[in-house]
């Protein structure tokens, strides 16, 4: 089923429509962080903890598609192999392949399928590079950001803007020196995030997340910082518990429903964009205007900026569409 979605198969839409009503119950966890910090190993250990509670777990592990060949090595699964024959664990690798609606659409679609299949916890792994970690904020209910000690400074490891989207910060590879320093540094950064002046500035960055919470009157989740050694599972039970308590916290304070509504709105927007853009693009590319513009650009008669403006404006006029420019 996910395969259809991956391949952008037209049948996927009707499937998603059927499944959507049954898909609201899973708790979706996003795990992101720089390459190699131990995300997959950590997820493997998390699965182990969640399985002790007899929860059904699905993992969506996203790896980058090579921009050159279009191929990908999906290697996250390698670290989770010990669960390969557990029927209550479903692991699906995805390549980031120039997804039409970006990563968030693709993972969201997959999460709908898995949630409808009855998986109670869905963990999404993305490499914290570029847009991916912000995309994950439009799919996941709770976000864990993984860093490691000793890579210069912890601040460097936590890229700008990413501090705001995390609910739980994980300093992995705690067996290495300087872990405590990394934890302190993170805590300091986070206390600044929560202080008013800086908080306001920061809050303007990833809008998606911050419009949601906190509402007046409902208490705020203070981000946690935890230390783990993913390889041998140290600290992972606490991490699993913390994710679950974040979930409970959101439920009790009505944040979860608000968040789900917000995520639904984001999903709707990205669907709109995909559907509309696909059709409009096709339509424009078939128009004479478009072909003229291409020829003119090629001949050096017009610059691409003017040409694009012209094609779009012309389309609006001929179709009698009016939009307020802002």
């Amino acid at each position: 089923m996910i395969r259809l979605i991956d391949d952008n198969n037209p049948k996927a839409f009707s499937l998603l429509k059927q499944l959507y009503p049954h898909s609201g119950n899973a708790f979706i966890i996003g795990i992101t962080g720089s390459p190699g910090v131990g995300k997959s190993t950590l997820i493997d250990a998390l699965i182990f903890e969640f399985r002790k509670l007899d929860l059904k777990i699905a993992v969506i592990a996203v790896d980058p598609t090579s921009p050159f060949s279009g191929g990908a090595i999906l290697g996250d699964r390698l670290r989770m192999q010990r669960h390969a024959s557990d029927e209550k664990v479903f692991i699906r690798s995805m390549a980031s392949r120039g997804q039409k609606g970006g990563l968030s659409r693709a993972t969201k679609d997959a999460a709908i399928v898995l949630s409808a299949m009855g998986y109670e916890i869905i963990i999404i792994e993305t490499v914290g590079a570029g847009q991916a970690e912000f995309d994950i904020a439009s799919v996941a209910h709770s976000i864990g950001i993984v860093t490691i000690p000793g890579t210069g400074d912890g601040i460097q490891a936590v890229k700008a803007g990413i501090l705001e989207i995390g609910d739980i910060f994980i300093v992995n590879k705690n067996d290495r020196p300087d872990a405590q320093a990394a934890v302190l540094e993170l805590k300091m950064m986070l206390s600044m995030r929560n202080s008013n002046t800086l908080g306001q500035i920061l809050n303007q960055a990833p809008r998606d997340k911050f419009e949601i919470c906190p509402q007046k009157g409902c208490s705020t989740w203070a981000p946690r910082v935890l230390k783990t050694i993913a390889q041998n599972g140290t600290g992972v039970k606490e991490l699993a518990d913390t994710f679950l308590s974040h979930f409970d916290f959101m439920k009790k304070n009505n944040i979860l429903d608000l968040k789900k509504k917000e995520l639904e709105r984001i999903y709707f927007n990205s669907l709109l964009k995909d559907l509309a853009m696909g059709k409009i693009e096709l339509f424009m590319q078939e128009s004479m205007d478009f072909k003229d513009a291409l020829n003119q650009i090629e001949a050096g008669l017009v610059d691409p900026i003017t040409a694009a403006e012209h094609v779009v404006n012309h389309l609006m006029v001929t179709r009698n569409l009016k939009v307020q420019d802002n």
């Binding site: 191929g71 090595i73 999906l74 699964r77 024959s85 690798s93």
Partner: peptide
């Protein structure tokens, strides 16, 4: 195979047939 544009899942060593 990746360089030829395919998506490759590498499962690692010592796989049972069930896995």
């Amino acid at each position: 195979l990746r360089d030829a544009g395919m998506e490759v899942i590498y499962s690692g060593l010592h796989q049972t047939l069930d896995q």
